[in-house]
Design a protein around this nucleic acid. Structure first.
Lengths: 349, 349
DNA sequence: TAGAGCCTGGACAACGTTGTCAGAAGCGGG
DNA sequence: CCCGCTTCTGACAACGTTGTCCAGGCTCTA
């Protein structure tokens, strides 16, 4: 056994270290290049004896087909790109997992990246994926102008947007019913007797945030409740500011008796604020959160099915790739109100 | 505006739809092929006027460099592969996010896949990534024999294992101090007066599970407490069986007064069981869980820093790629005991 | 004005694979 | 014994890019 460290084996001059190619395998097996290709791809027309010799050479050399070259030749990469906002957000875990499962079922690999909610970074990522010639893209958009994708769409890159619609281009999109979900959630609070209901959500330039806000306003209007500006806090997302926003709403001489929160991160922060608050304030949050059922009270939420969003989008992507798809479509998945207690707290006054 | 659907634009015969190549751009700009290449790559030696003409042609045609061809030529893909167990597990979100951040800082894309804890699927994925000629691999292993990676390592594919060590090969690995963390967690329970302490964890064939079990046993032995077999439940991971295991431990005439849980999923289930239980049973869990601080009582955990694991591994990977690294190394990151209440409950009897 | 040197641009090969096509070998029937 | 057929094999071009190298035109100096 040699005692030189493993990595010293590398021959720096050689690309890919020093990987054997089909040519090397062919030489060693004493056959033609194409015969190796046939064996590697399981094509018919190779004598068992020849195949054995080739296989032996492959194993001896540790040959692995170079898919880059293959892709160049064949024009299909068998990979799709996923651009999302933040992998660490628990909402995107199941979504990306679902996309991956579908990709796997179609024999494709998943390449992904996070935009960190930055439109430039989104574009950079998408174009990098296109340069890789991914067969298709699933995009959770951060920006609101996707005209930069026009050449790609024209060139046949299958594209599906998820969670938020694309801006200024026409493409498939799979959404949750943000408007309806929020409206139902707020209506639920109203049905339990609340009239002064706060809303804390993200910047309205984000489609989901705008829709949820619209749902809130619709529910209030349906109930004939005029909304005070001080009940709405928009564009607030980092914990410290959410905390302050919630506390201000509660400190009012005529405080809100319930809060509707626009996404999971906001919900968690508001739960913390309410935990230190003695008066019973009702809470309904958009997006489910883990352990919501174990808190006191359990957290009532409007849940979206992240996995279903991902699955639906990916399946549609592969139908585009099959060529069986026609015009771009907008698919909206329903949300589900999960009552656990916090949304059923009666108004304090 | 034409009313034919967008996708009808595709010319099916052409690879990649009908993407323009550098040749097309060159023809349109009336320059040589290499000049286009120079402009695209920002190389020196092109007159501003020529550059302008080329750029114009690029924009007009919607040209994007084909990275497959580039990779073939250059030998570096500027991408790394990440193989993990389950993207939907909240533990892996931050980890994979951290890997992605480091990759991004080095200008690399991340290709990932889930093994679903299946060794065959892990191997399949890893080899698919190698066929893509990723520059490096970050692997959270599912299997315990990685000799199939030997040709890859020899060929210079940088490889770092995370969370669990590789089997039967020598390679870099970044781990949490599972043994020490579990020992400390259990010692914490003992320090609070517990002597009958249960352990519920995953199959000991999984390295982390085995180490945590070892930590449990060490702490008990250090305290001179003989462990009864009925206190240990191994290889139990799906919620229903965890529930049964916990209930059995508590139903014993001489029941455990505290439980140490071996991972986040087990912890969550046990929390549910304890919530329906009136006697105060102490709990310390391995892995932090969200909202653990808001439960009654707060959940005391041995927290690992998933992001740090990912970051450390990825950084080490890129140091391998820089060529500044020598022998494989084993890096162990410390865990942190976070006391929140559930671990400080005194024994019931 | 001639020669040296620099700058710009382009022709060409190579990367590793696959598709096309044609040649070689084997075999059976007339 | 030859022809035609089938079966297997390999030579060659092509995929789109980049590295090498050389040619031509220009500027600068003597």
């Amino acid at each position: 056994m040699p005692d030189t460290p493993r990595r010293a084996d590398r021959i720096p001059g050689n690309r890919y270290g020093n990987r054997p190619t089909m040519k090397d395998v062919a030489a060693r097996a004493g056959v033609g290049l194409k015969t190796v290709s046939r064996v590697v791809n399981g094509e018919a027309g190779v004598t068992p004896e020849t195949e054995r010799r080739v296989q032996e050479a492959i194993d001896a050399l540790g040959f692995r087909r170079n898919d880059s070259a293959r892709v160049l030749r064949k024009g299909r990469t068998a990979s799709i790109g996923l651009v999302l906002e933040d992998l660490a957000d628990p909402f995107y875990g199941p979504l990306s997992r679902a996309v991956e499962e579908v990709a796997r079922a179609h024999g494709a690999l998943l390449i992904n990246g996070s935009s960190a909610e930055d439109p430039d970074r989104e574009q950079e990522l998408v174009l990098a994926l296109c340069a890789r010639r991914v067969d298709g893209l699933v995009v959770i958009p951060a920006g609101d102008d996707h005209r930069y994708l026009e050449p790609e769409l024209k060139a046949g890159v299958a594209t599906v947007f998820v969670d938020r619609p694309p801006g200024r281009i026409d493409a498939d999109v799979v959404l949750s019913d943000n408007y309806g979900g929020a409206r139902d959630g707020v209506a639920h609070l109203i049905a339990h007797g609340h009239r002064r209901i706060g809303f804390i959500g993200d910047m309205p330039r984000i489609h989901t945030a705008a829709e949820r806000l619209r749902g809130y306003q619709a529910a209030m209007e349906d109930a004939g409740i005029p909304v005070k500006d001080s009940w709405m806090s928009l564009g607030v997302t980092d914990p410290e500011r959410v905390r302050r926003a919630a506390e201000e709403m509660l400190a009012d001489p005529h405080p809100v008796t319930a809060i509707f929160t626009g996404n999971n991160r906001v919900t968690v922060t508001v739960i913390r604020v309410l935990a230190q608050h003695d008066r019973g304030v009702a809470l309904v949050g958009f997006d489910d959160i883990e352990l919501a059922d174990l808190l006191q009270p359990g957290v009532t939420v409007v849940a979206q099915d992240a996995a279903a969003l991902g699955r639906t989008a990916a399946e549609r992507l592969f139908r585009q790739l099959d060529g069986t798809l026609l015009a771009p479509e907008r698919i909206e998945l329903p949300t589900r109100l999960v009552t656990r207690g916090s949304g059923e707290v009666p108004p304090a006054d």
